[in-house]
Simulated assay, not measured.
Amino acid sequence: MLDKLTLDQMRTFVAVVEGGSFRAGAVRLSRVQSAISHAIGTLEAELKVALFTRTGRKPELTAEGQALLTDARAILIKVDAMRARARGLGQGLELSLAIAVDPVVAPAMLAGALNDLLKEYPSLGVAMKTLPMRAALHALVNRQCMLALTTDTTRDSLVEAERLGPSQPFVAVCAPHHPLATAPAAGWSAVALSEHLQIVVSDPSPLSEGLDFGVLSPGTWRVSDLASKLALIEAGIGWGNLPLWLVEGALSRGTLVRVAAAALGAQAETALTAYLLWRVDQPLGPAARHLRQRLKVRFGG
């Protein structure tokens, strides 16, 4: 019988695993180490399995412990989501709403949704941070915002994700006088593209430290924002991928041309989809729920 299992025991189990030791688990939960050891021992007695080996300096998960860790985390996520939903049912209007936004998301549709929000809740304050790539997810996981709007597909078990609408094109471009502006009939290969300097936006998030996305050239210049990236590409310094909404004007004026990059597919472009993210354990108030609904309308979701 497992009727005597408690959520506290499961939280203690997860805290010890995530902390790496009984002592670290005690610090996370603001308890004495003996209480942590007692809780784990009681949990093991109830489950009739050993969750940790205790022969080394630090406790190591047993095979049974590894299997049951997944179950414990799933149960805690469900419980936290239930509590958040219950709190949200009686929650009043937020005083302010913090939002993290990936800069490649089309600003016109976001601005339209925020204008709808203003009309509905004119007294609401909004704090919006522009955070590229996985930085928006990182801000949400660390409770620095209530909502995150991103095209990154990385997911966290504490985060709910909702697709907002059709994919938006992300295209390779260069200046008209750049060597990549005139392509062979078959288009530029990955090898050919790698011979030219690529301008990329750096990801400030520790979630992807040391990783690159969409980078084909060993030679890169890194910038922190799309405006700087666009300016360097228009100057002919290098080539790079940018959202189509950002470069449509430059393409029509002829200050940029699309790179015929066979390595990027038949249309030499990547499809990016916008997602709205929020924590499952943090209830959305009336304003956040309204913005969620207006974003879906504006993005065509």
Rank of each mutant, 00 (worst) to 15 (best):
L7C: 06
R11C: 15
F13G: 12
V14P: 11
V14Q: 14
V16Q: 09
G20P: 04
S21E: 11
G25D: 10
A26V: 06
A26W: 13
R28V: 14
S30C: 00
R31V: 02
Q33N: 12
Q33C: 15
I36L: 01
S37W: 06
L43G: 09
K48D: 11
F52T: 10
P59T: 06
E60T: 13
E60S: 01
L61C: 05
T62M: 00
Q66K: 11
T70N: 02
T70H: 04
A72P: 02
R73T: 13
I77K: 12
D80T: 03
D80K: 13
A84L: 09
A86E: 12
R87S: 11
L89R: 15
Q91W: 02
E94A: 07
S96W: 09
L97W: 02
A98V: 01
I99L: 11
A100R: 11
A100T: 09
V105K: 13
V105H: 08
A106E: 14
P107G: 14
L110R: 02
A111R: 08
G112I: 00
G112D: 10
A113H: 14
L117W: 09
P122I: 09
S123Y: 08
L124R: 13
A127Y: 01
L131S: 00
L131G: 01
P132G: 05
M133Q: 12
A136W: 00
L137E: 01
H138N: 13
A139N: 06
L140Q: 02
L140C: 03
V141W: 01
Q144R: 15
M146R: 12
L147A: 07
A148H: 14
T151S: 15
T151K: 13
T151A: 10
T153M: 15
R155I: 07
L158I: 01
A161L: 06
A161Y: 00
E162W: 04
E162G: 04
L164Y: 01
G165F: 11
G165Y: 04
P166C: 02
S167K: 11
S167H: 09
S167C: 04
S167D: 12
V173M: 10
P176L: 05
P176E: 05
H177M: 03
A183I: 08
A186L: 03
W188Q: 01
H196V: 02
L197N: 12
V200M: 08
V201N: 04
S202W: 10
P204A: 03
P206G: 07
L211V: 15
D212V: 07
F213A: 11
F213W: 14
W221C: 09
R222C: 15
S224A: 15
L226E: 01
L226K: 09
A227D: 15
A227L: 13
A231I: 02
N241T: 14
L242E: 05
W245Y: 13
E248Q: 13
G249M: 07
V257A: 06
R258N: 10
V259R: 01
V259W: 00
A261Q: 05
A263M: 00
L264M: 04
L264V: 00
A271M: 05
T273L: 03
L277H: 10
R279K: 06
L284K: 08
G285Q: 03
P286T: 05
P286D: 06
A287T: 05
A288C: 10
R289G: 14
R289E: 05
L291N: 03
L291S: 08
Q293Y: 07
V297W: 02
R298V: 03
F299K: 10
F299C: 06
G300T: 09
